[in-house]
Amino acid sequence: MNDEIKTVKSFDLTGLSCPMPIVKVSKAMKELNPGDIIDALTSDPGALTDFPAWAKTSGNDIVDTRPEGENTRFFIKKS
């Protein structure tokens, strides 16, 4: 699934609608060290444009975005 990208934490955010996916990920990022990567699986279609926009605002990096069926998994690196 996330075999090439080493993540420190995984989040299953399917079934949650905005703002909750971003609220949860934002909180988690604040507890990480720079360079740490997490992955978050989302089902909310709004996440597709919200995650990149949020990452830009918060200064984090989306290093990969992978569709998984109806869902999308984001890999986010703390800068």
Binding site: S26, W54, T57
Partner: peptide
């Protein structure tokens, strides 16, 4: 987010003040 706002926003003759601040800006700042 700005992208969604640019694509489609509310309009009306008596809408004189509108601003776009994404919810995650309230979360981060």
């Amino acid at each position: 987010n700005n992208e969604e706002f640019e694509k489609f926003a509310i309009e009306g003759p008596f809408l004189t003040q509108m601003t776009n601040i994404p919810y995650f800006e309230f979360l981060e700042f």
